[in-house]
Amino acid sequence: MNRQEAPRSGRIVAELRQRIEAGELAPGDRVPSTREITRQWGVAMATATRVLAELRQEGLVRAVRGVGTVVEARSKPARTGRPPAAGRPDASPAPASPATASPARRQPAADEALTLGRIVTSAIAVADAEGLAAVSMRRVAADLGVATMSLYRHVADKDDLLMRMMDAAFSRWTFPAVPPEGWREQLTLAARMLWDMFRRHPWLAPALSLARPQAVASALPFTEWVLTALERHGLDFSLAFTVHLTLFNYVRGTAFNVEMEREAEALTGLDSEEWMDAQEPAFQTLLATGRFPALGRLTESGYDFDLDGLFTFGLQRLLDGIAAFMEETS
């Protein structure tokens, strides 16, 4: 961003901040996307991106999956810069009645009703909607209406909470009592179940580690299912485990794109199609050089990118390779 763009971003931030604090943009309302900012204020895309990033840093807005960037709920009245006037609702708050007691007075009862299951469910809901980075002990406690310290009676820390989140996510998926015929069909079933799980919980793939696997009890049936299918076909245990890791890494690696796309959309305010539209001039400039004729022909004919289709294609080719390998070893 050049020096002229920086002051403009500050003015746009100040204007949107004033609209939020004045109540013109209420909690939950969508704020202008990066594309709308570029159109309304005539600034570059980088400037529009910086505007939303600064508003998020101030805690005024947050990204909501499938919705866009919205105004964050505030726990205190908006600052309008004017002192409370006599007769206005904010001039002299009335004493709270038992039915409208403050959250602090209701917390003891809420704390007593707190369970580990409610904590984990709430944390998963936050991660599903906003990503794993949005999950914190304070955030989960606020969503449950309890004191932050009350969570520590059920979980040791955020790492412990994450382990329980992963365990809960895997526990909702079960294999059929009677497996399908053939190792390929059994591996396909396991891979698709894993893919569907990553699609439902985009944070889960980045949270799992291949090099330093976590002891998630409910995830072990996936490993057991694949190893059993391959061993029944006569594959050596060590090779079977290598095949399992290869399959798992393919599914997990492809699923990484789901979370990355969500984070990119939250950061820029653009979905994948809008982003490609914004990048088209740069791509056309590169193609005009004539250095990439094959890519130019592809661009002219068009390509419908579909992550699910890409996963299916790659999975089948991976299984083809495993099948050829198993024939060689046998």
Rank of each mutant, 00 (worst) to 15 (best):
F170V: 01
P103K: 00
A127W: 04
R317C: 07
K158A: 05
H233E: 15
T49I: 05
E263K: 02
E54Y: 06
E224D: 15
M163I: 05
S209H: 09
R199L: 11
L235M: 15
D271Y: 03
M149Y: 12
A169V: 11
D271V: 01
I322P: 08
S136D: 02
V146W: 13
R17W: 10
G290D: 01
Y250T: 01
V216H: 03
T121M: 02
P180I: 04
I124G: 09
G68V: 00
R17L: 06
G290I: 00
G314S: 01
F313E: 10
T188I: 03
E265F: 14
A191H: 04
A101K: 03
L55H: 07
G66Q: 06
R317Q: 12
E273G: 08
A91E: 13
D277M: 08
W275M: 13
S97Q: 06
E265D: 14
M1H: 00
D128A: 15
P213L: 01
L162C: 14
P32R: 07
L227C: 11
S92T: 09
A101D: 12
P77C: 12
A109Q: 02
G234M: 14
S150M: 07
A127D: 06
V251K: 08
R297E: 07
E24L: 10
T254S: 08
R50P: 02
L25K: 08
L208N: 11
E273L: 09
L208P: 10
L227P: 10
R19N: 06
P206A: 14
T246N: 09
E181R: 15
L227R: 13
A219F: 10
L144N: 12
S97D: 08
F292L: 14
F256E: 11
S136G: 03
V178D: 15
G87M: 12
L310D: 05
L52S: 12
A156N: 08
N249K: 02
D304L: 12
A323Q: 13
R317H: 10
R3N: 05
T148N: 07
P77F: 05
R252M: 06
A63T: 08
L245E: 09
R82A: 15
P176N: 14
A134T: 11
I124K: 06
I20P: 12
A207L: 13
R164Q: 13
T312Y: 02
A44P: 04
E112M: 13
P27R: 15
A229E: 07
R17I: 03
D304Q: 13
A14Y: 08
V51D: 05
E224P: 07
P27W: 13
A217V: 02
F248G: 04
R297Y: 03
R106V: 01
P221T: 01
L287D: 07
G269T: 07
T329S: 15
T38M: 14
S136F: 00
N2H: 03
Q316I: 01
A264T: 14
S92G: 08
F256M: 11
E261C: 12
I20M: 15
N249T: 03
F222E: 10
A324R: 09
V120E: 04
R30I: 06
E231R: 08
L144P: 11
V258S: 09
E21T: 01
E300P: 12
V140F: 05
M163A: 12
R17E: 13
Q279Y: 02
S122R: 11
R11N: 15
L287C: 05
E327A: 10
T34L: 03
A113T: 02
R35C: 10
P27A: 14
P213G: 00
